[in-house]
Amino acid sequence: MRILGIESSCDETGVALVQTEDGPGLPRLLAHALHSQIAMHQAYGGVVPELASRDHIRRVLPLTQAVLDEAGLAREAIDVVAFTRGPGLAGALLVGAGVACALGASLGRPVLGVHHLEGHLLSPFLSADAPEFPFVALLVSGGHTQLMRVEGVGRYELLGETIDDAAGEAFDKSAKLMGLPYPGGPWLAKLAEGGDEQAFRLPRPLLHSGDLDFSFAGLKTAVLTQARKLGEDLEARKADLAASTQAAIVEVLLRKSLTALDRTGLRRLVVAGGVGANRQLRAQLDAACKRRGVRVHYPELHLCTDNGAMIAMAAAMRLQAGLEQAQPRYAFDVRPRWPLDALAAG
């Protein structure tokens, strides 16, 4: 079975094709293509939803054709069309949903709406070092920071989540306060490589709260306060402030993840989402998990950002697990707000 996945939840248009084999093996990626809108949104310092939606309209069909060409297949070879149903920007989601349903109807193929965060959660199964169930998952994607206990496809228990800003927002907002370009997170991480992470004492919110929840709004405020204190010296100390900010975020993510492993008794950790590409986070998690005899898994770096491969993969794994029925229904809706722990298992 070949599943086409379309991702359009925010500012990346992604299309991919995966194929399932007979038997218990994992689906494999046949081809994928991605267009990022970063250059378009940089002038505004953030994502402009209307512009994002219009760009998805321009990109999705050419990307679909590019994927089919790479795989050497015609449209008729598609067996199921999957799309991101939510969460995300409503207008952007509607583009992917509309195209997916139109394509499915034209081919007489089933269409399946997929949870964006489930796509991230299952994206490490596309890597050469695929995990095995059960595991603890650290989801650090955009406005989401969550710890989940994952027993299998569709079997998710929320252990903790952010109560205000997510880790990705803390990176991006702190970077903006330092005058770094959009999107700020990667710029801050790059700048931090040349800084002293102990230069500034920044808070680690909820580090000793006793629960597995996160809070990064206070850290952003502390960065703003420190930047104002530095005044004209900010430019000279920017690398140190970036390194100190990154160290605070990484320490909270690390300590909470290790606590989740201890409380669940699980020996496997999956890290997914855009922040999962952060080198400092990966290095510290790798070292800490190695000391504890815990396996840690990540998506391939090019699949950490939003992409169609994770949507196709999630659809394929849900179909394999018998949680979805491949039926040709073409009425659709989108869910801009859709908690992952509320996702029905069947």
Rank of each mutant, 00 (worst) to 15 (best):
R295Y: 05
L340D: 13
Q198S: 15
V223T: 13
I6N: 08
R237S: 13
L285P: 02
F216W: 12
F216S: 06
Q320E: 10
V296P: 14
L34Q: 07
P27S: 07
G154V: 01
F135L: 11
A314T: 12
A260S: 00
L253C: 01
A272Q: 00
D11M: 09
I249T: 06
P183H: 04
G274Q: 02
R155G: 02
A100N: 10
G195C: 08
Q226L: 09
L34H: 13
L281T: 02
V48W: 13
L207F: 13
V47T: 02
R295W: 05
L301S: 13
P336M: 03
A170R: 01
A92P: 15
G179P: 05
D164V: 04
R54C: 06
G46M: 12
L34P: 02
M317T: 03
P134V: 07
E50A: 12
L34M: 13
M310S: 10
A287D: 05
R58T: 09
T245R: 03
Q246A: 04
E197V: 01
R329N: 05
V60E: 14
R2S: 06
Y330H: 08
G23Y: 11
A199V: 04
Q19N: 04
V47L: 14
G231C: 12
G293H: 09
L191G: 02
A199T: 03
G308P: 10
L26I: 12
V114R: 09
H302V: 13
Y182F: 14
A97Q: 14
V275P: 01
R268L: 00
A242D: 13
G179N: 06
K176D: 00
S127E: 14
R267Q: 08
L29V: 08
A66K: 14
A236N: 11
D196K: 09
D333G: 15
I78S: 07
E132T: 15
S209Y: 09
E251Q: 12
A31I: 05
L158M: 12
E232I: 02
R291T: 12
M178E: 05
S127I: 07
M148L: 15
E193D: 11
S141N: 06
A102W: 07
G23I: 07
E251C: 00
A189Q: 08
A227W: 03
K229I: 11
G273R: 00
E132K: 14
E12I: 09
N278D: 03
A342D: 15
E70I: 01
W187M: 13
G276F: 00
L138I: 09
F214S: 09
A39C: 00
G218W: 08
G45E: 11
R282Y: 01
D22Y: 02
G168R: 02
V67E: 05
D211F: 07
M310A: 12
L224M: 14
D213Q: 14
A342R: 15
A236E: 15
A100H: 13
E151A: 12
A82F: 09
L254P: 04
E251T: 06
P186L: 03
